[in-house]
Write a protein that binds this DNA or RNA. Structure first.
Lengths: 208, 208, 208, 208
DNA sequence: GATGAATGAGATTTCATTCAT
DNA sequence: TATGAATGAAATCTCATTCAT
């Protein structure tokens, strides 16, 4: 990689970084290309040179943000063997990821509001998702060891895990008001992780 | 009320109706005042005369949409006595409400993306919410009858109910892709209502 | 027509007038909407409100300019009876029209350079053209009176009339240099009218 | 000439070739430097290095295109002796040239629309023009041999020849619609060459 | 109350040209 | 010589809002 190419790469990365800030914050339509350029300290025309147009840049950001899910893989593969503990760790990891990546949460929300248009166009759903992958494995293993009945509907577990984790962050602003607490606080998050895990396990056991 | 006043009232209602369509669909920034005027078949200036500006109209819509939750009251007060059946019915009613009121779901999403700014300003949180009110009563009654332990954390039940219900609709677009099913279908919704209820009950019982 | 409508009409006409100046001068791509707005002393957005976009405005101008040809009708219907004199007068009228309407000449040139795209789209060719209509009648009458042979190819006469008249103005800038004269001068135009008429007549007679 | 110089020369030629395509097609303002670079497969900055700026390149193209007229010389010097036949051949050669060199026709049109600015600046009018040169000789010879009267106005013949030939191609798009034929077809071109020649001869003879 | 015209500020995008290597 | 990155200025078009009637 030549110096030139490195510089270009750095520029592109800067653009993407601030584009992520802006898009996740204000969405495709609320965000201003001018603002991204200003923050990234580059000429507006450069953004167009590198990314073609606003929408393409948005999609690039979406893909980029979603890809970070994949980085959870290494954390996930070293989980404990016991499936109860495994599940608890998994919930913990997912909560931590969503807490650490607010732009992920917001981009997924924007996408849902826009009919998941870019999500579909860029095949974002195909991105590696270690959380769901591992949940599937946990259930499968438990089935094999007859710890849970064959009849268990894994989709319900997936939906519950996502709902309890994702919604906690996506609806944080209104939930804070409803329960009258700051759900961002570590102790409240921990409680929620605990409850979510218990909920999933209780459901599994009740079905035995 | 004079004829004139009735006409004015009808005009306002038409504006609000189509403003709801547009705002819930495209959000405060994606929506166009021109489009609302066109759909409502009124002059744009009239919208300004009646509502001052775009943002005020948006808040009016938000309040209006949220108020519909209150209409669930009559459905909720006639629930069965048994708390398990009561809970199941409550989940059912909430799912049905969210299914019937997509603009409610979307407005709440927009609000969360915008820091619940209008939500707070207009005290929307104070709006009567029969679902949460009833859930509180169910837990309280169960506590009194010692059907659940005193220690139960009602917030976790509230958060789970909202998460499992709301997220099902708010993230419908991406969830459909993830589970590879059309979650809007009646049969899939029923399954989810069932699972959500079971989840809540299993959690309650496990705590006994 | 209300006052309001009259004002609107005046605004539209002002826009069209200066749009004609600019488009005929610099073409669709060389012309600037800003400049039209400035000249017409109206807000730029107003142009878009009334005409949609730059290209539509351009087409409107094209139609408008072309329509002026139709106004020649009254001049043409009062021509002398003798076909030689009639032809001479016709050439004279056409030259005068092109001299008086430089924007007509230029718009036709722009159109030809752009593949007559707008010309076709707006059906400009169907616009009443008294010059060609009358030339057709002259030839037909002459044929009936056996003043010219049946075999005469009227297309060649049309093409010659247009070529000798139109090209004189369209290529004025380069022709001036080639012949080393100012062809705009009245005396030179008169000579050319004379020669063009003679050329047409000589061709007709030679064919007898 | 070193290898390096040859390469440079080839690059320049490639640029000029595609610049001609673009400029003749879209004019000075419609054409994009980016597009020329892309087509010529060279870096944009190279164009600036070699030609300074867009306008200079345009003028270079204009000169280049006009110079091709000079190549007609060898065809013209071998014409028949009889002046009628000579004239017919001349018209034929000119038509063929214009047919073979559409970019010549278009560049002349662009120039006329822009006040022949570059035409004058680069002294394009001084470029060898065998057609007009030969037409002048034909008339002069005919005068000497008293085949035409002294009084003949050679400018009118020049203007007619140019008009009937050039306008046929420059206004092709609109003329096609007017006469309802495809004037590009060989048979229609032949008819027009014939008619143009006859017109010129008839005019000459009528003056005898 | 109601309307259609009009506006100002700003949004996205384009493009000739220059810079750095 | 040749290149890809970068820029500044400007172009088209949009949109919330106000004006005049």
């Amino acid at each position: 990689m030549t110096k030139q190419e490195m510089r270009t790469d750095a520029t592109k990365k800067a653009i993407l970084k601030f584009a992520e800030e802006e898009f996740s914050d204000k969405g495709l339509y609320g965000c201003r290309v001018d603002e991204i350029a200003r923050k990234a300290n580059v000429n507006k025309a450069l953004i167009y040179r590198h990314f073609g147009n606003k929408e393409t840049l948005y999609k690039e950001v979406l893909v980029r943000v979603y890809t970070r899910l994949g980085d959870l893989e290494e954390k996930v593969i070293n989980l404990q063997t016991d499936y109860e503990l495994k599940l608890k760790d998994l919930v913990h990891i997912y909560f931590q990821f969503l807490y650490d990546n607010p732009s992920f949460v917001r981009m997924v929300m924007w996408e849902n509001l826009h009919g998941a248009k870019s999500f579909k166009e860029r095949g974002v759903a195909e991105t590696k998702n270690p959380i769901l992958h591992e949940l599937g494995r946990i259930i499968q293993e438990a089935r094999l060891r007859s710890e849970v009945p064959e009849s268990i509907d894994s989709d319900q577990l997936i939906l519950t895990l996502i709902a309890c984790s994702f919604n906690y962050f996506s609806n944080m602003n209104t939930l804070n008001i409803i329960v009258g607490k700051d759900l961002m606080l570590s102790e409240n998050r921990e409680k929620r992780i605990q409850a979510t895990t218990e909920m999933l396990l209780a459901y599994l056991k009740a079905r035995q």
